[in-house]
Nucleic acid binder design. Sequence first.
RNA 1: GGCCGGGUGGCGGAAUUGGUAUACGCGUUCGACUUAAAAUCGAAUGGGGAAACCCGUACGGGUUCAAGUCCCGUCCCGGCUACCA
Length: 781
Amino acid sequence: MDRYEPLKIEQKWQKIWEKEEAFKASEEEGRPKMMLAEMFPYPSGAGLHVGHVRNFTIVDVLTRFYRQQGLNVLRPFGYDTFGLPAENYAIKTGTAPQEVTKENIANFRKQAKKLGYAIDWSREINTSDPEYYKWTQWCFLQLYKKGLAYQKESYQWWCPEDQTVLANEQVENGKCWRCGHEVEKKKMKQWFFKITDYADELLDEIDNLEWPDKIKTMQKNWIGRSVGSEIEFKLLASSFSGRSSRPSSRGSSLSPRSDCGFPSKEALTSLNSITVFTTRPDTILGATFIVVAPEYVGLEYIVSDDAREEVMKYKAEALKKSEIERQENKEKTGVFTGAYAINPATKEKIPIWVADYVLAGYGTGAIMAVPAYDERDREFAEKFDLPVVEAELIDRDLYGAPKVMYKMRDWLISRQRYWGCPIPIAYDKEGNPHPIPEDQLPVMLPEIEDYKPDASGRSALAKAKDWLKVEIDGEEMTRETDTLDGYACSSWYLWRYASPHDTEAAWDAEAIKYWEPVDYYCGGDHAVAHLLYIRFWCKFFADMGYLPFREPIKRLLYNGYINAPDGKKMSKSKGNVIDPLDVINDGYGADTLRTYEMFIGPYDLDAAWDTRSVGGVYRFLNRCYNLQEASTASNAAIRNKTIKKVTEDIHRYSFNTAVAALMEYVNELYKSGAEKEDLVVLAKLLKPFAPHLASEMLERLDSDDEWPKWDEKYLVADTVELVVQVNGRLRAKFEVPVDDLEDEDKIIKMVLDDKKVQKYTEGGIKKTIFVKKAKLINIVV
RNA sequence: GGCCGGGUGGCGGAAUUGGUAUACGCGUUCGACUUAAAAUCGAAUGGGGAAACCCGUACGGGUUCAAGUCCCGUCCCGGCUACCA
């Protein structure tokens, strides 16, 4: 008996695959393709963790499965390298992020190769490579040209720890997604992508995607479409506080979304009404007061002189409150503005209040409060003793104009950080932005000495004096010092995979048309952010004529986490981290690690690591390796059954039961003895999970790796087991010829004549039910 | 608070369309090999009972010849979301 030495076998095959460039893919017109990818990793200094292995192995199992079925398969790989960890490390140690990133990539590559993934290594990409981010900048310019990249001043989330603004999607529970520090609101001029232009399409096409419902629902909720009305409430003239600049007869109404910029002075001085958004215009007869957000843009023009001091104090306090404080304290607060408006339906004079339970960023920042129908309004009315009127409902469209609102905001992309893709913009002496001409791309990220950001609201790039100067059309300009949100870099990388070395374009039209959209995309993170952004860019570039499809990802597999043996999240500080490279080097090898992580449980659920079960998988592979050929056996039935089971299980991503089926098969073969064909089929079915061992077995058997097909005729046995229940309880089993199942009378007679069955049926039989498909008889007595 | 998952042996889990609950693996016990151990191989393994049998998929009801699976109610766990008018 040979000893199974995984490390030796694995090294041998990894060398062969490397030398042969075994997984290099190229377009072949007419040959069906398959493109698969994982969410590319951020190459951290810690190297691969078991979560990466699960994620990458799922993709690899599918990759090899479809390769063995003869499809033209592309499985590329890349690195998402811009971001805070490398920069923070640079600040701490003075090592350039460029250097650290290079080392980390080299380590990730080495480790991924040790796991035997069927990657086309000629297509490696890295988002911080100027050859790559040149085209990220090009993408930005396309959006800019169409007005979908724009600047505006507004209150934004600011992380005082990381000294940068954050997108809404990067604020979790009022805390920074990276460092966990509480975020603040800060008024700043920032760059945005106008994702809201695509809100409707992003929402409507979700239902057509083969994605997990969980993700689809999260995206729907994030976009948050509400259908309602905007209704104008005229301000009561007498409520104005004798300001000299009276609203003119050409007065206008404001419907400001506070994050959409600031209205002109003229608009404000002519303010004579408030527009509210409501999903219940039919309840307007019960609207007994109006509430505006503390940040409401027209607030100081509405407020009466008597109330001014108190209102401004309330506003200042509300702005100071952190998001956490606002969340923790659900107790309603607010103050009366001293102003009144007219309810257009009842013609009654109703008071205008300011309260922080109304959000500035949603709708118009003002609501009509209907305490009889809305719980929050009722709470507020009760606390401040405002009238509650149980009014009847009316026709929705009588007093307002239908309007659709979204929770989703535009995507804030400026980051006041060094280690990111420079935004290809420069400013003239008047401060007007100008795009960097495409032929001057890439705007290189300069090497600097001091990476530390400060509270100035500008990135460390502001200190790179030479780099700041740029000449456009003969005019001296100053570069933008903010860098792009890393999510911008990852919003188009899947298309770069089609032609990763293209120097003429971000992606090659022909190559894209052949390979994409991506057939399978696998990851366990970024349910809304990345997966929404990439859909947005896809739709935009489709509109520009650069992409021949409007959804970038056909099928999404969202895998669960692997936790520590104690069920808790793995973390360095808890000291419960399992290093996948240790598992390999301990002698188990990559095949065991891969197969174990597929066997650990359903791919989409979290699972806890169990070191002893790793040994069980190793024993299984060892048994595969040592299974000897015996000439006498005939296992066509179990063999074909196993082919079918494994094939169908992989198709439905039930990797754990596919491995279990292979274990059963091997157990069976050890009992009955294996034919050569059994060994060949075993190796072929095993290959997606344990490719090195399977390759070794196939070489020994002198076989190719073509995926086997099953023949239904072997799955039909001569005899079947007939189950007999009495009142639903299992009482007897009979081995009967399969043909007898066609003759119900004969079967029932045979069963009722049986002594063992008669023991239960002495008292008389009410009826018998024969279920041919289940090979089951139920006798009711 | 709202929405979505989930609750099955000592443990991870299986049961795909309402039809034999607990596949496969771990663990445990016993046996073989060995001076011994490891490794490996074989057998047993939901609970109760001497047995016939009985009880068992969070809990309480219901539908059905038949329920882990469908319906109603309750409890617990996880995720997302969180004053979005």
